[in-house]
Write a protein that binds this DNA or RNA. Structure first.
Length: 287
DNA sequence: ATCCAGGATCTCC
DNA sequence: GGAGATCATGGA
């Protein structure tokens, strides 16, 4: 990896297995857009513009301090993904194809609260709708960063919002789940920061005490926010693509799919899941 | 119009 | 502990 500051922009070169397009569009994050040839990401209370060229990425209007102290970790740039890719592709032709398809995916290290609320909203919902709801919540209850960009609100800001008002953001039946999460935090029954040291199974169970967080949503939260890369969320896409390729096109219980994946991919389950999800959804496999 | 979406809960057995 | 209906909302 090589990076340098040129005119208030960070130019990143010589890095393998990184694509901002694949990283943002693989379904792990919702608060971004693509416009005029570059991505705009809202995270870490900042607005970041990123352009991807064949031999480099350009991070606009940032500095070395932010890049080194925030974005390298956020984009998981220090990890060697070639080891992971080689390991999960062993005796697995389907995974080879999936890795080849999404080789530039990095699993982000996202904010606990925003990720929790985001994946509560994700249940029985579509990605464009999830993005719209999160934008509604941010512009209504977050703080203005600059221009039309707002931060995602913290739990204190959302604790002042009524169920009725939250529904105006198109959360639908999920508003009561969001409020249950916020209330548990304000009551001290849930502390997302303190939970970061728990073993993964206990962390998952603790999250699942919140109404609206089940097995799959909990898996997403621990994977995308708490760095638990062994987690293997089984959603409709993973279910379809795995039934198609690994289960002879036969209906298979989510719990069985997950248990088998945990055994097969071990500490790399989350990566395997993202490669499969990205390929399946991008190519409409199994649908 | 009917079905479905990065599911979870509630009810009933 | 498993099957089935239900939950808002909007796009296909």
């Amino acid at each position: 990896m090589n990076y340098k500051l040129i005119d208030k922009n960070i130019v990143l070169t010589d890095i393998e297995n990184f694509s901002i397009k694949q990283t943002l569009e693989c379904g792990q994050i919702f608060r971004f857009k693509y416009e005029n040839g570059r991505y705009t990401l809202i995270a870490k209370n900042r607005v970041l513009h990123i352009e991807e060229k064949t031999d480099r990425h350009i991070f606009y209007n940032t500095d070395l301090d932010d890049f080194e102290n925030i974005w390298i970790d956020y984009f998981d740039l220090k990890r060697d993904y070639s080891i992971i890719q080689k390991e999960i592709c062993r005796d697995d032709n389907v995974m080879e194809e999936a890795v080849d398809y999404g080789r530039g995916i990095r699993i982000l290290n996202q904010d606990y609260f925003e990720t929790t609320i985001s994946f509560i909203i994700s249940q029985n919902n579509r990605i464009p709708m999830i993005k719209a709801v999160l934008e509604n919540i941010s512009s209504s209850y977050g703080e203005k960063i600059k221009d039309e960009y707002y931060s995602f609100p913290d739990w204190e800001a959302l604790s002042k919002v009524s169920d009725e008002d939250l529904r105006l953001c198109k959360t639908g039946f999920r508003s009561k789940y969001i409020l249950d999460c916020v209330n548990k935090i304000s009551d001290g029954k849930l502390n997302l920061k303190e939970m970061e040291d728990l073993p993964t199974d206990e962390l998952k169970k603790k999250l699942m005490e919140v109404k609206g967080i089940g097995e799959k949503v909990s898996d997403c939260i621990v994977l995308f926010a708490y760095g638990r890369r062994e987690a293997f969320p089984v959603d409709v896409w993973i279910k379809r693509v795995m039934e198609f390729y690994y289960y002879n096109n036969e209906k298979t219980d989510n719990s069985l799919i997950r248990d088998n994946a945990l055994k097969k991919y071990g500490q790399y389950g989350g990566y395997a899941q993202q490669y499969l999800f990205y390929m399946a959804r991008s190519e409409n496999i199994g649908k």
